[in-house]
Write a protein that binds this DNA or RNA. Sequence first.
DNA 1: GACTTTCTAGATAGATCGCTCTAGTAATTG
DNA 2: CAATTACTAGAGCGATCTATCTAGAAAGTC
Lengths: 193, 193
Amino acid sequence: MPSETRERILDSSGELFRRQGYMGTGVKQIVDEAGAPFGSLYHFFPGGKEELGAETIRRSGAIYGLLLGEFLGPEVDLVTGIAEFFAGAGDTLIETDYADACPIATVALEVSSTNEELRVACADVFEAWIAGATARFELGGIATGRARELAIQVIASLEGAFVLCRALRSTEPLEVAGAAAVREMRDALASSG
Amino acid sequence: MPSETRERILDSSGELFRRQGYMGTGVKQIVDEAGAPFGSLYHFFPGGKEELGAETIRRSGAIYGLLLGEFLGPEVDLVTGIAEFFAGAGDTLIETDYADACPIATVALEVSSTNEELRVACADVFEAWIAGATARFELGGIATGRARELAIQVIASLEGAFVLCRALRSTEPLEVAGAAAVREMRDALASSG
DNA sequence: GACTTTCTAGATAGATCGCTCTAGTAATTG
DNA sequence: CAATTACTAGAGCGATCTATCTAGAAAGTC
């Protein structure tokens, strides 16, 4: 039985880390936003902010991976799935005033050279996304070697577009990257099918 | 006559912001690394950390833009230039233990939803890079509308690959993204030339 | 109902944050 | 040489940071 308070703390930290990063978010702010007592944080996460950070990264990453999996379900066309995922990401950006993009990218850049435990958590998430997309692409008929390349390429385009979109406050990069990803996917399917 | 101390402070903040972000870097650490007296920071940057941040972003962004411009000089082949830029970025990652990637991406994600002045500084840098690449691509014979798309796409791929490379501690994403950018560039040149 | 575990509640410690302030030293100008 | 400006130097302020601590409430168990 997962504690409700614990879940609320993780929800809160997930949202705050996504928007303002790990270093830019205080533990006080996390419990306040969660409506949780301060003491509960250290009861559920004895390792403090770092333990909470690691679990938040893995949890937020897994949830976003599930979202990606829904768009790339085995029953839907790969090209359509990719196009709709990028379009949906753009809609979310507008709805959230360019706040909600990748849940872990900000933290990943912050910690990659400063905190090995959190860096590994981010790496695990990215590798899981890549593995998931690779498997789905292979299932769709893309050659094995090419499938992983395509997966990396699509995710990198998405991440980079997020960086540009949030700074520019425009969905143009996401639209351009989405169109390019669709084009590459079409080409890959044509040359292997 | 630009002060030498002032330059050292900017060099130091540029390096630290790139590696550990804006929120993760203290002003004390900046002056220590620069070998500069603490008081000098507020002498040269009366607006404090925020003013230093804005100037660091614009300066680091301009320097990186010049680097990009060298690889995409009007005398070199566009395809070769792109390929070598991505390869060089990978070499730099390895040489710096995956620390030196994009000088402003970490800060851009950190401040996009929290600090409008710094967000605008990042947006100006990205827009300048896009404009520079667009102009170069048009000069190389890419159709006007397509040139900007291609510029955005290449920069987004680069930024996203940096995120993945730093977290995964691997240059694979940069190699994949570079190959894809080369492919797109070749196609664009073929279909418009 | 007594006992144990789980969780809540927040005061407080110690360190660090960005920043201001005063004082003093170099450099420049009249 | 006197006067002014530019810069160095760092002590110290209030605020905030993460984390610990004690105490008590709630919930489950015998």
